[in-house]
Amino acid sequence: MNHQQLEKDIEHLEHVMPRISAADRIPLSYWRTRVNSVLAAMLVPSQASRVKRLNEALRVLEARGN
């Protein structure tokens, strides 16, 4: 994944994560796949900390959904 696409993906996730819930039409598993794909990329430290926050927010949503 190139740097520009990676940055766009992180920005998109940062935008939607506060708005999603376990009851949404798009399942949390979709968002888990998106976050995991970003986690698997080569991240600079600032991106890594942002993705860590996204991962934690999603983990909380997943725990609430169970």
Rank of each mutant, 00 (worst) to 15 (best):
R64P: 00
N66M: 07
S21I: 08
S29V: 11
A63V: 10
S29P: 01
L28R: 05
H12V: 05
D24L: 04
I20F: 09
D9N: 15
L13S: 12
L58G: 01
R32N: 05
A22G: 09
S46N: 05
E11S: 14
L39E: 14
A41E: 10
H3F: 13
R34K: 12
V44R: 07
L39I: 07
V16C: 07
V60L: 06
L39Y: 02
N36G: 08
H15I: 03
N2L: 15
A41S: 14
P45W: 05
W31M: 01
E11D: 11
I20P: 03
T33C: 01
K52W: 03
K8G: 12
W31I: 02
R19S: 10
H12P: 05
H15A: 12
L61D: 00
L43W: 15
H12A: 15
V16H: 08
L43I: 00
L61G: 02
P27T: 06
E14V: 09
V35D: 04
S29T: 14
G65F: 15
S21P: 06
S29C: 05
Q4D: 15
Y30M: 06
R32Q: 12
E7G: 04
L58V: 01
S21F: 13
S21H: 08
A63L: 04
T33W: 08
K8S: 13
E14A: 11
L28F: 03
Q47V: 02
P18G: 11
R59G: 00
S21E: 04
R53W: 02
L13K: 04
S29N: 09
I10K: 13
R50A: 02
D9F: 11
V35W: 02
V38N: 01
R32P: 00
P45G: 06
A57Q: 10
E62H: 04
S29L: 11
M42W: 05
E56Y: 10
M42D: 13
A63N: 07
V60D: 02
M42K: 12
A63D: 09
R59E: 07
A63S: 08
R34S: 07
V44F: 06
H15C: 06
L6M: 14
W31E: 01
T33Q: 10
S37V: 15
N66E: 12
T33S: 11
P18T: 10
A41G: 11
N36T: 10
L13N: 05
L43H: 13
L13E: 02
R32K: 15
M17V: 08
H12T: 11
W31F: 15
A41K: 02
Y30Q: 07
R50Q: 05
R25K: 11
L58Y: 03
V60T: 07
K8L: 13
K52M: 00
G65S: 15
P27L: 08
E11Q: 15
A48S: 09
A48Q: 14
L13A: 14
V35S: 03
R19Q: 14
T33A: 09
R19P: 00
M1S: 14
R19M: 09
H12Y: 14
N55L: 01
